[in-house]
Design a protein around this nucleic acid. Structure first.
Length: 469
RNA sequence: GGUCCCAUCGUCUAGUGGCCCAGGACGUCGGCCUCUCACGCCGAAAACACGGGUUCGAGUCCCGUUGGGAUCACCA
């Protein structure tokens, strides 16, 4: 029998969607798509202090950008408090949970003592067998964890992991203010939503035995688990803000293609032989937990940059033109209300593709194609716009002036004729022209550049260059 | 500190006992191509953490050591 696969990504909205969360979402999504299952987004916002709607939106937006849209949800745990209540009541009635009146200060005291003695930092179980309620104190509800035996977790990536139950303590399921906590809500929701596979970061591995005991107490089957290794920063510590950009949307702003980021992320911890570049379809087809590594991976921005370039090269000119447009408007190269000739822009982009690693780089280069006026790089101007090139530039301008068929082919003929006459190599003319047209010494092939800029603007810039000598 | 996880080039990884004096990719270095920069192509340096076993044979299995990570909240 094969029940339908149902997986979930369950972030807490206490921050934007970061790289690690995105990869967890991605693996869930891949597994769901591959199994023709359901991918659910569940917002774990039971910590009302730190959760905000803004972060919920940021997470949804980030997933949308990456193309990881959910089939069900987003669900919010704060909408489901009534459900958790009934489960808590049930466990209390069955003697599987109890009220605890210990104060936070008292617990902190015990933890310190345990730390000194080198013991597990574990709740003593003081209120476990209390017969009478303590008056005047709002109690928490704790789960009665078994004290003997061991709990086995079968994990799809880590294998079989065993925990001694005496290490587990009586976790709090309900705070003194009546709200439920993570370890309960995650189990109740996974049961209630019919989750078949729990795929999450391996920072949750230590929580898993507690949750397994909760499943047992509630009388439900445990789902399959897959605990993904962490993503580390360059110093091998957990990826954090001080490692630079960790928000998924930061990569959007930096001009990365979402598919490139997805491709990069999936290869962090997963592999398929020697293949590096995958289409989404290939990822869905090839993905398997058998090929997920167990060790944490260091996030490597250089490789992501390389992949992004690969994706840019392989994108169509039209889609790239479409994607680069917002960047052009943002930096003012194109005013927002201006009508844009998209087929011209696509042609311009085609010359820039293989020399750009990000959309921003394309946008920056596009400036010398689009802007009316360009500024010369001072060093370049001195080196190439001088007496040595003056005559050739003038001849080129005049030659173009009288040109009826302004094509790359004709332009090249003109160049060849001029350099032949002056008995110099092509570079001696191409570089000065490059500086005259783009302001700098690096650009696509000079004939392409002229073709994209067009006759009138090219002549105007040559004039200006000659006049500057 | 207790518990749990992990360990192949700087980084991501291939490797599931003989095909491995360890393969690919990023990055680095050198070269080719060339109107510049790129792209592309060719080449180089670069790793099985250490120590014991098991086995005819170990990167691959077992144990230990070391190192890293995670977790131990009325956070998730």
């Amino acid at each position: 029998m094969s029940e339908k696969v149902r997986v979930r990504f369950a972030p807490s909205p206490t921050g934007y969607l970061h790289i690690g969360g995105a990869r967890t979402a991605l693996f869930n999504w891949l597994y769901a798509k591959q199994s023709k299952g359901i991918f659910i987004l569940r917002i774990e916002d039971t910590d009302r202090e730190r959760s905000t709607d803004e972060y919920i939106n940021a997470i949804v937006q980030g997933m949308k950008w990456l193309g990881l849209e959910c089939d069900e949800g987003p669900f919010r745990q704060t909408d489901r408090f009534h459900i958790y209540k009934t489960y808590i009541k049930k466990l209390i009635n069955e003697g599987k949970a109890y009220y605890c009146y210990c104060s936070p200060e008292e617990l902190e005291e015990n933890r310190k003592k345990a730390m000194k003695l080198g013991r597990a930092l574990k709740y003593s179980g003081k209120c476990r067998d209390l017969k009478e309620p303590v008056t005047g104190i709002k109690p928490v509800v704790r789960f009665k964890m078994p004290r003997k035996g061991s709990t086995h977790v079968e994990d799809m990536v880590k294998g079989s992991v065993v925990f001694e139950n005496e290490q587990l303590d009586d976790l709090i399921m309900q705070r003194s203010d009546g709200t439920p906590t993570y370890n309960l809500t995650v189990v109740v929701d996974d049961v209630d939503m019919g989750i078949t596979h729990v795929i999450r970061g391996d920072d949750h591995l230590n929580n898993t035995p507690r949750q397994v005991q909760l499943y047992n107490a509630l009388g439900y089957d445990v789902p399959k688990f897959a605990h993904l290794p962490m993503i580390l920063g360059s110093d091998k510590s957990r990826l954090s803000k001080r490692h630079g950009a960790t928000s998924v949307m930061a990569y959007c702003k930096m001009g990365y293609l979402p598919d490139a980021l997805v491709n990069y992320l999936v290869r962090l911890g997963w592999s398929y032989g020697d293949q590096e570049v995958f289409s989404k379809d290939e990822l869905i087809r090839y993905f398997s937990f058998d090929n997920v590594g167990k060790a944490a991976a260091v996030f490597n921005p250089e490789k992501l940059l390389w992949l992004n370039q690969q994706y840019i090269i392989n994108s169509s000119n039209e889609s790239l033109a479409e994607r680069v447009l917002p960047f052009l408007m943002k930096d003012g190269t194109i005013s927002e209300d201006r009508q844009v000739d998209m087929s011209w822009l696509a042609k311009a982009v085609s010359t820039l593709k293989e020399r750009s690693k990000t959309l921003i780089e394309i946008a920056v280069s596009l400036r010398y194609y689009i802007a009316e006026d360009i500024e010369f790089d001072e060093k370049a101007r001195k080196k190439f716009l001088n007496e040595n090139s003056r005559d050739m530039l003038t001849e080129l301008k005049d030659g173009m002036d009288g040109m009826d068929n302004f094509s790359e082919e004709e332009i090249e003929k003109l160049f060849k004729a001029i350099v032949a006459k002056h008995e110099v190599t092509l570079g001696k003319l191409a570089q000065p022209v490059r500086v005259a047209l783009t302001g700098g010494t690096q650009s696509p092939g000079i004939f392409e550049v002229i073709d994209v800029i067009g006759k009138d603007k090219t002549i105007r810039r040559l004039e200006k260059a000659v006049n500057s000598i």
